[in-house]
Design a protein around this nucleic acid. Structure first.
Length: 481
RNA sequence: GGCGGCAUGGCCAAGUGGUAAGGCAAGGGUCUGCAAAAUCCUCACCCUCAGUUCGAGUCUGAGUGCCGCCUCCA
């Protein structure tokens, strides 16, 4: 089976074939940097990073562009509150975003364009739309004439006659009078008193929300991309408007595949499920979560659900995934043992049958839960065999053990699951302090002072350290943090 | 009001016609001075009703419940 990807545009899984053989142009909508990233962002970008990784694993060269919307009302509001400039606020939270994504082992985009660095491309595109008759100026604003674009609604399956403008009660009163039609949306907004503004043919102002993606995508990837991705809330109106803007000018499809990830939801105090979002105020920031949980636990949690399905987040589920992750990590961390004890090469042959099963899952619209079953099987084999040896048994086939490990390593990397180096774990106790306690306990055990030995075990357990005794080698420990 | 999605064991979650993957948790056994995420074993009338079919978690219809979008949103 070759790769099939669900296309929001056609509502079907379709055989994936990029425009140019072996090359994928991938555009992903980024964040508006006015606050720290929350779990919902984490879910979204873990998904797209995994898609990108799998495309590359499948032999494609991927150009991945992701924007920052660094000019926006919410950033301005934040700037007002903090006394910083809009640019300072944006830079702060862009840096924060990069930190969080790095923790989740999300690879940086090929480029991260920003509104502030793409202004000429944006105003040029608006000019083209005006010339083509799809945009009209009004009181210093410029609006897109939605009814002129015949295909409007093709992505979200909405038809104008079915929409009720303002149903969500969020119409901007100031704009209503300036629009020829309630469905029209702003391409350019006239400068307000005290706000940053850029010069334009329509007077000073700043871009509307949707235009930057059309402009940046075109600048970096051309008229048509292979994949355009984002959260499912962006499907309408954002992506719909991007299509209207871009296709009105180019006459070509903006994207062949539109991909949307499902939300990460939370249960509120009344037990109702709702999406995590900044505007609802129910978000947990990634950086707070990572104080107590491994970023890889969240990554595994995300991968354990098909990317289009919603996830109802809870700490219990995160803990379950953290438990599972630690066992995978333990298996991944066997590299030293394989190299020094088994004397097997860390690079080399892998298990083709397991890789085929992994691909079978991933080729079916990135079915990561299916692919993970292979990861868990490999883990089970490795830990079982390893444990046999640590309990005095012998390893039947060291070469096969190494092949299995290499396969696990390879497939984990495709999913972006990355083990910490053993010594780099963050703990309340240093490795040296733990080793000292283990030594004390060893002495206690040798003198059959079980009370003292158990006290040390308990003490370390309270610090999140679990001791494991072995028949023929010193006691080892693992951290549950 | 319109459009779309979801409903599988204690929790999470795959499975789109052939007799229920996987993870976490739990219980029991092994091992252990004790212990352990090690090891062995156990654990599903797939929301309801009615159809189609030799056969349905999977298809059709009706119903019930939940969620999302309808110009802030990943």
């Amino acid at each position: 089976m070759a790769l099939h990807i669900y296309n929001t545009l056609t509502r079907k899984k379709e055989f994936f074939q990029p425009q140019s053989a072996g090359q994928v142009k991938f555009y992903c909508c980024g964040v508006t940097p006015y606050d720290h990233s929350h779990l919902g962002h984490g879910r979204s970008y873990v998904v797209w990073d995994t898609v990108r990784r799998y495309l590359e694993f499948s032999g494609y060269s991927v150009t991945y562009i992701q924007n920052f919307t660094d000019v926006d009302d919410k950033i301005l509001k934040r700037a007002d509150e903090t006394g910083l400039t809009m640019t300072e606020v944006a830079n702060t939270f862009i840096a924060s975003y990069h930190d969080d994504m790095k923790a989740l082992n999300i690879r940086p985009a090929t480029a991260f364009p920003r509104i502030t660095t793409s202004m000429p491309q944006i105003t040029d595109l608006i000019k083209e739309l005006e010339t083509a008759g799809f945009a009209y100026p009004s009181h210093g604003d410029v609006y897109y004439h939605v009814r002129r674009f015949a295909d409007y609604g093709k992505l979200s399956g909405k038809r104008l006659e079915q929409l009720e403008a303002g149903r969500s009660n969020r119409l901007n009163d100031d704009e209503v009078d300036r629009k020829q039609d309630p469905f029209d949306f702003a391409l350019w907004k006239a400068a307000q008193e005290g706000e940053p503004a850029w010069e334009s043919p329509w007077g000073p102002g700043r871009p509307g929300w949707h235009i930057e993606c059309s402009a940046m995508l075109r600048e970096h990837l051309g008229d048509t991309v292979d994949i355009h991705a984002g959260g499912e809330d962006l499907q309408f109106p954002h992506h719909e408007n991007e299509i209207a803007q871009s296709e009105a000018v180019t006459g070509k499809p903006l994207a062949h595949w539109w991909m949307h990830n499902g939300f990460l939801n939370v249960v509120d105090s009344e037990g109702k499920v709702e999406k995590m979002s900044k505007s609802l105020g129910n978000f947990v920031t990634l950086r707070n979560l990572f104080q107590e949980y491994s970023p890889m636990a969240l990554r595994l949690l995300v991968l354990n659900t098909i990317y289009r399905n919603p996830i109802t987040f809870s700490l219990d589920i995160l803990q379950a995934n953290q438990n599972a992750w630690h066992t995978i990590e333990e298996a991944l961390q066997l590299s030293d043992w394989i190299a020094s004890i088994l004397r097997q090469p860390l690079d080399g042959e892998v298990l083709s049958e397991e890789i085929e099963r992994f691909k079978k899952g991933m080729d079916d619209d990135f079915n990561t839960p299916e692919a993970l079953t292979v990861i868990f099987e490999l883990r089970n084999y490795l830990l079982k065999e390893y444990n046999t040896v640590t309990h005095g048994g012998t390893l039947a086939d060291p070469a096969h053990f190494a092949r299995t490990w290499r396969t696990l390593k390879l497939l984990s990397e495709v999913l972006g699951l990355k083990a910490e180096p053993i010594k780099a774990k963050i703990m309340s106790l240093s490795a040296e302090a733990i080793e000292a306690q283990i030594l004390l306990r060893k002495q206690a055990r040798e003198s059959r002072n079980w009370g003292e030995a158990d006290r040390i075990r308990k003490y370390l357990a309270e610090k999140g350290i679990t001791l494991i005794d072995h028949k023929d080698k010193p006691t080892t420990w693992i951290s549950s943090l």
